[in-house]
């Protein structure tokens, strides 16, 4: 189980790295889709079919929207990490070095907290349900819903769903406002 997931994750990392270094924006988007659809298989292996259905549909819709955005625009990536001067010698751009240094410092910062947290986590596959044991035990009787995820989503933690619906509504209003060229008469 862990081996299968590791192989899938390595493929996803390769896809992510290619997405960030591709010259063409369209191929970058499509290799970002590798990560998204790999996530679907991971969810299926991890016994989360609800998430798999949502992720596969959302990934497709996102891909359509993103391709629609870039298709009329420029598709060339603008990467200038190496600058040539007049004498023909080339050197690496100073700003790029600065960016990479920032990444390294932030990565070390995150690595510190990851190292702190990983000791307290249970090893993979031996999760002890502390908070959710009440949900698992009584959810079907208290809510009457056979799907426990729906029971949690709409009964025990319905405020989260309300917040999600509000965020989606706000995003739609924002998109309509940003993309309006002529004002409404």
């Amino acid at each position: 189980m862990e081996l299968t997931l590791s192989i899938l994750l390595v493929f996803m990392i390769i896809g992510a790295v290619y997405a960030l270094f591709a010259r063409d924006l369209l191929s970058a988007l499509i290799s970002c889709g590798i990560v998204g659809y790999g996530l679907v298989i991971c969810f299926l292996l991890l016994k989360a079919p609800d998430l798999a259905i949502v992720q596969i549909v959302v990934e497709t819709v996102t891909l359509i929207i993103m391709v629609a955005v870039i298709l009329d625009s420029t598709r060339q990536d603008l990467r200038e990490k190496i600058v040539h001067n007049e004498r023909g010698t080339h050197f690496i751009n100073a700003k790029y070095v600065f960016n990479v240094l920032t990444v390294v410092i932030l990565a070390l910062f995150f690595l510190f907290f990851f190292n702190q947290a990983i000791g307290r986590l249970e090893p993979f596959g031996t999760h002890v349900t502390r908070m959710a044991s009440a949900y698992v035990g009584d959810a079907a009787i208290k809510t009457g819903s056979a799907n426990l995820v729906t029971g949690v989503l709409f009964d025990f933690r319905a405020y989260d769903t309300l917040g999600e619906a509000t965020i989606l509504f706000t995003a739609v209003v924002g998109v309509l406002t940003i993309l309006r060229i002529k004002g409404r008469k």
Binding site: P49, D50, A52, I53, V54, V57, V58, T60, V61, G144, S145, A146, N147, V149, T150, G151, L153
Partner: peptide, 16 residues
């Protein structure tokens, strides 16, 4: 409330 899925997944399929 019976099978995998629900409002989020079904709504995305409808828009699809």
């Amino acid at each position: 409330h019976l099978t995998p899925g629900g409002g989020f997944a079904g709504g995305a399929v409808l828009s699809g």
